[in-house]
Nucleic acid binder design. Sequence first.
DNA 1: TTATCATATCGATATATATCGATATATAGC
DNA 2: GCTATATATCGATATATATCGATATGATAA
Lengths: 100, 100
Amino acid sequence: MNIIEINKVLSNKVRIDILDWLKDMESNFPPQINVPNFNNGVCVCHIQDKTGLSQSTISHYLTMMHKVDIVIATRIGKWTYYKRNEKVIKEYIKLLQSTL
Amino acid sequence: MNIIEINKVLSNKVRIDILDWLKDMESNFPPQINVPNFNNGVCVCHIQDKTGLSQSTISHYLTMMHKVDIVIATRIGKWTYYKRNEKVIKEYIKLLQSTL
DNA sequence: TTATCATATCGATATATATCGATATATAGC
DNA sequence: GCTATATATCGATATATATCGATATGATAA
């Protein structure tokens, strides 16, 4: 848990937006899969579509976000699904509160 | 109040440290002035001494911090004193909480 | 096993940030 | 008006970040 590194990742509008969209995947993204109770998040391509940035850029963003642990990545078949890591996000806010 | 810009400013250890030191100026800095109830903060040179970075760098850091309003600057004579802007810092944390 | 698709990584380039020393500005004291 | 002092700004250079297209990797399907 490194505040500086997380702040760097959160110094970009698109990355903040992605985190926000992932709060409500059903309304922000097309349905992922015909599996009930699928709970692994959203695939890279859907996130890419929504931002309009290149595939490599979005993949890079999501890798950054994963490195500081604010998202959880799950590979299923050829897809990688990303969802919020609520635990770490909460911890980050708490740490920020006590640090600032 | 721009989260992205504040996050950029807070993506640096020294700037986070400065904000932390300013929580307790009496113990972190030499006495400022022989005026009782002096409440305008700490001058640039004392902050510079503590960091060991160049005067221009620290002045630049404090200017950045002032631009996003997390510190208050007061010019008295040839000195500029900086202190925390508690109101904005609180607002920032609140906004972050509701955004993330 | 080959072709296809989703994602990750690479390499390049443009832009931003970090940091310094030098210079400018503003104030105070002589 | 000069001089000294504190701070801000400027200009330069090094490093980091943003972003893309191209390529590599890994999985599925034909």
